[in-house]
């Protein structure tokens, strides 16, 4: 594995989503909920997408959910992603009611299924961590997240 080619990482300075990524460094998977109408908002913003309120509260997800859909990427011209082919990109429905894009790791792509229960795992980088997911059945025997550290 080459560590020379680096993975594209999110910016901590992006105003709407920066706080989400800052929290990942302490392995917190955050989402927002409107204090006025209780709508769960994701991706992070500064307003409620249901009622327009600007009063959103941050919550920490338990990090478990179900795979809504997925694909196995077998071609990507990007230097980093081409080095990890094939890999799984998925949409996961978290139990708290938000849907997020992520990677399903530590399991063979062919074994990943829609409807599978998954749990967050963390890939640690300098100033943030990426919330990837692993199937819950495999999670018990999965290697600790620290083994996935790239930099």
């Amino acid at each position: 594995m080459s560590n020379v080619v680096t993975r594209p990482l999110p910016s901590l300075d992006e105003p709407d989503t920066g706080p989400f990524w800052e929290a990942t460094s302490s392995h917190e998977l955050r989402y927002q909920q409107c204090r006025e109408c209780n709508k769960v908002v994701f991706y992070p913003r500064r307003h409620c997408t249901n009622c327009g309120s600007s009063i959103l509260e941050w919550h920490v997800s338990a990090g478990e959910g179900v795979i809504y859909s997925l694909t196995v990427i077998r071609r990507n011209g990007h230097p980093y992603f081409s080095s990890i082919l094939p890999y799984v990109v998925a949409l996961v429905d978290l139990d708290e009611g938000f849907r997020m894009m992520t990677n399903i790791v530590q399991t063979a792509p062919e074994d990943v299924r829609i409807g599978q229960r998954v749990k967050v795992s963390w890939e640690d980088y300098d100033r943030l961590s990426l919330p990837v997911f692993v199937p819950v059945v495999n999670a018990v025997s999965a290697k600790p997240a620290e083994d996935k550290v790239v930099s």
Binding site: P10, E14, G18, Y43, H78, F81, V89, M100, M101
Partner: peptide, 20 residues
């Protein structure tokens, strides 16, 4: 191989890391 725009916005900042 393009990872959308260089300038981060709320959308690409949540999606670029996953290699979709």
């Amino acid at each position: 191989g393009r990872v959308s725009e260089r300038v981060s916005n709320p959308v690409n900042n949540m999606e670029n890391p996953w290699g979709l």
